[in-house]
Amino acid sequence: MTTLNELRAAVPAQGWLGEALERVAGDPGAIGRLFPAAGRRVGRDALADVPGWSADEAARVQLLAALPADRVAAEAEGLYRYGDAAEKRAVLKALPLLPIADEGVPLLQDAIRTNDTRLVAAALGPYARHLDDAAWRQAVLKCVFMGLPLSSVDSLDERADAELATMLRGLVEERQAAGRDMAPDALALLDRLKGL
């Protein structure tokens, strides 16, 4: 799992970000205006050293992590609620790196209800361990249905079970009946689940 320190190394707390982190630590409410500006301030390039992450996401995670611990869950909820798609994605990706328990689960559930592939994928990172099995299986099936690569699902093989295999087989049957293809990564997963 990507760590906060890797993100800090990739996007150091200098200049705008350094000042923003100090402000947020002293005045948590200031994050409301700083969080949306992160992409304009630090850029949005993919980070070479942290695969799957961009500069704005790394900055946004650091802003959340700079909050006093007792404010993290409430601010994350508000930033997600009023966030654009990139902000929502950053909050979702930040959840496993923040000092919270399962308070972020409603955000995952919201993201999984959307039809935005970027949000669904971001909801299935390491924090998805807090999702109950039924919700997690539905989300994985939704990934396959939407054409998302299963590589975006954290701990896929550890958690995939016989019930998920049954659901995937049902989708394969429907696709076959319609003369449509099934994604190779989903077929490969089914193959790995054969013994269950």
């Binding site: 409301g32 205006r33 949306p36 500006a37 992409g39 304009r40 009023y82 654009d84 990139a86 902000e87």
Partner: peptide, 11 residues
Amino acid sequence: DLLPRYLEKDG
């Protein structure tokens, strides 16, 4: 009262 939040968005 809610507009300032949205007026900070990238898009």
